[in-house]
Design a protein around this nucleic acid. Structure first.
Lengths: 207, 207, 207, 207
DNA sequence: GATGAATGAGCGTTCATTCAT
DNA sequence: AATGAATGAACGCTCATTCAT
C-alpha cells in the first residue's frame, strides 16, 4: 500500500531479459545439456512455466540467448565496417581492438565457449548460429580484405578466401581461457596483437 | 575353481581395453552427455554391470578414456623433431603435413573435438591434458622456431612466444568440421596451407 | 459505473452462452481430457479468466454444457409421437428417418459420442441424462410399440420390454463413425434401414 | 537362506502379466488418459522404469492390454466357428451364450467400455483394435451367416452385409452397465436373448 | 466484471547405477 | 568375475487455475 510496495515494478526489467540473463548464467555454469529449466526459472525469479511464455523450448531459449548476446557486437561491427573512413589497416586494427575488448574481455567469451561446446548436438541451433553470427562476422572480415585489395592497400592473397584464418585465434583464446587459464594463463591481448601483426605482415608486403 | 585363477587373466583380451575402445567410439559419436552406458556395453560386448567393475562411474570412464588417446601422434612428432635434419622451413612443412594427415584427416579429428567440448567439466583431466599433450605439442613448435632463429633461417618475432598462434587453425578446423560442415564445408587442406604460408611469410621476411 | 449495471446484461449477447457454445465445439473436437481452456476461451472470444467467472472449473463447464444439448430433438420426437396419426409401422419409419437425419446425419452424432465417452466420469450428469433424455427417448419407442400392439398392428413380444434393443444401433453407429470410419467406413443409412427391417420383420409376423 | 526366503519366486507370476493386470485395473478405474504410470507401477509392485522394460510407452501398454484381454475369447470363438458341427442356429446360440458369459459377465465388459471411450484419441490403437479384434469378431458372425445361408438354414438378407447389427447390443449393454446400472439396471442376459430371438426370427423366415 | 500473465503441480519417459543370481 | 533386470531420481514441458490490474 505504500509507494514502495513493489520494488520490482520500478525497474520492470523486462521478464524476457531476466530469463535470458538467468539462462546465460546457468548455461555458462553447467553447459546447455546439464542445465535445468528449474534453475533458470529460480535465478530469473519466475515460475518454471513462465519461461515457456517467452520461449517455446529449452532449445529456443538457447537460440534467444545466442541472438541476445551476439546482436550488439554484430551491429557495432556492421556500423564500423559500413561507416569507417579509415584506411584498411586501421580498420582491421580497430576491429581487433573491438574483439579484444567486447568479445574476449567480457562474459561473451564464455558464451562463445558455451556455444562451441554445445551446439553440435543441435543442428538447428548450429545452422542458426552460422547464419546469424558466424557468416556475418566472417563477411565483415572478407569485406575489409576485399576493400583493402581493391584500394591497393592490401595484397591479394588466399587470406581473402579464408577469413576463418583471421578469426582462428578466437576459438583458441576462448578455449584456452576456459580450460587452461588456472595453471597456464594466456596473455590474450598480446596473443591477438601478435596475430594481427602476422596478418598485416602478409597483407602489406608488396607482391 | 581356484587353480584357474591366473589363467583367466591371460585369456581375456583385456576387457578393460575393450570397454575403453567402445567408450571412445560412443563418446566421439554422441558426446559425453548423450552417450548411454547401454551402448558402450553393447559395443564392448559386455553387460552393463561389467563396466562398473572396471570404472566406478560414467565420469571416471570418460576420464580414463580421454587420458589415453593422445600418445601415438605425440611420439611421432617427437621423433620428427628430434631426428630431422631438414632445414626449419622444411621441418615446419613436414609438421603441418603430419597434422593434416594424422589429426585432421582421420577420425582423430573427432576425438579432438570430443576432448575440446567436454574437458572443461573435468578440471583434473584438463591439467593432465595440458601437461602431457598440449604443452608438449606447443613445445615442438617452439623448438622448431627457436632453432630456426638460432640458425638464422627464421626471423625472431613474437610468434616464438605464442606457439598457440601457430596451432590456432587446429581448433578452428576441428570445430568448423564438426558444426558447420554440412552446410558450409571448409577445405581444411588449403586452409592449413594458407596458414602455413602466412607463418612463413612472417618468419622468412628479412627484418 | 453503477447506473449502467442493468444495461450491460442486455447488450452482452449472453457471454455464458458463448462460452458454452465454444466449449461444445472444443469438447466435441478433442474430448474432455484433451480440451484446453485456452482454446475454449479463444473460440468464445473471451479471456481465459472470464470462463471462471461463469463456471468454477473445467468439470463444471463440461457438466453445464452436457446438460443443455439434448432438448430440441426430444421436443421434435415428442411432437411426432403425440400428434402423428400414421399407423405404427409408418410412425416407426418416420422415427428412424428422424434419427438418421437429425442425429446421425449432423454434428450431433459427435455430441452423442462425446457424451457417451465422457459421462461415466460424472455420475450426477449420468443420472440427469438418464432421467431427462434416455428414459424419455426410450419411452417414445415403448409408446409406439405398446400402441402398435394395442391396435393389433404389432405383435406382442419382448421388444416391448427392451426398447434399448431398438436403439442399440445408435451407439454402434456413433462409435463406428468416430473410431473406424477412416479405414472401415459404414453406410449408416443402410445400416439403420436394415435394423428397421429387422424390427418390422419381428413386429409384423403373425404369431 | 531358508527355503521360504522369497515367496515371490514361488509364484513368479510373470512381471509382464503383473503389469498388464495393474494397468487393467488402473485404466478401468480412471480411464486411459487420467491414469498415471506411477499408479500402474505401484499396483504392479514394480518401479516406474520397470514398466518401460516391457512396454515402450503408455500407448503400447494399452495395446498390450487390449491384446491380452481380447486374445483368449477370440481364440475360443475361432475354435468354435472352425470346429463346431452344430447347425447354424445352434452355433449362433452358442456364440451368444459365450458373449454373455465371457464378455458381458466378466471384467472384460469394463475393458470394452474402456476401449470404446478412450480409443478415438489414438488412431494407432484404433486401427490395431479394429484389425486384431473387431474385424475378426465380425468375421465370425459373417462366416456363420454365410454358412447358414449356403446350407439353406438361414435366409439371405442384408444382415449378412451388416454383422455390426448382430453385435449392436454389445456396446449398448456395455455402456448401459457402465453408466446407468446403479439407478436403472438392465437384465443383460434377457436383453441379449431378446436380440438373438429378433435375429433368428429374421433369419429363419422363409422368404 | 474482464483480463491474461503467471503459477506450479503433475506426467511420461530416460538412464546411470545397483544387486541378486 | 559377470550378468542384466530392476530401480527411482531427474527432467522438459503442459495446462487448469489464480489474481493483480
Amino acid at each position: 500500500m505504500t509507494t514502495m510496495k513493489r520494488e520490482r515494478r520500478k525497474e520492470a526489467p523486462d521478464k524476457r531479459e531476466e530469463i535470458l540473463n538467468a539462462a546465460l548464467s546457468v548455461f555458462v555454469e553447467h553447459g546447455f545439456g546439464a542445465s535445468r529449466m528449474d534453475e533458470v526459472a529460480k535465478r530469473a525469479g519466475v515460475a518454471k512455466g513462465t519461461i515457456y511464455l517467452y520461449f517455446p523450448s529449452k532449445e529456443e531459449l538457447f537460440k534467444g540467448l545466442i541472438e541476445n548476446v551476439a546482436s550488439p557486437p554484430l551491429e557495432a561491427l556492421q556500423t564500423l565496417v559500413d561507416t569507417s573512413d579509415a584506411d584498411s589497416e586501421q580498420l582491421l586494427r580497430t576491429m581487433f581492438a573491438f574483439v579484444k575488448r567486447e568479445l574476449l574481455g567480457t562474459e561473451r567469451r564464455q558464451v562463445i565457449h558455451l556455444i562451441l561446446t554445445e551446439v553440435h548436438r543441435f543442428p538447428d541451433v548450429a545452422r542458426f548460429y552460422y547464419e546469424n553470427v558466424v557468416s556475418r562476422a566472417l563477411g565483415f572480415l572478407r569485406t575489409i580484405m576485399e576493400r583493402g585489395v581493391a584500394r591497393g592497400e592490401f595484397r591479394d592473397c588466399d587470406l581473402v578466401r579464408f577469413p576463418q584464418l583471421m578469426a582462428a585465434p578466437l576459438p583458441m583464446a576462448v578455449f584456452w581461457s576456459a580450460i587452461f587459464e588456472p595453471f597456464a594463463p594466456l596473455d590474450v591481448d598480446r596473443f591477438m596483437d601478435t596475430h594481427l601483426d602476422l596478418l598485416l605482415t602478409k597483407l602489406k608486403v608488396k607482391s
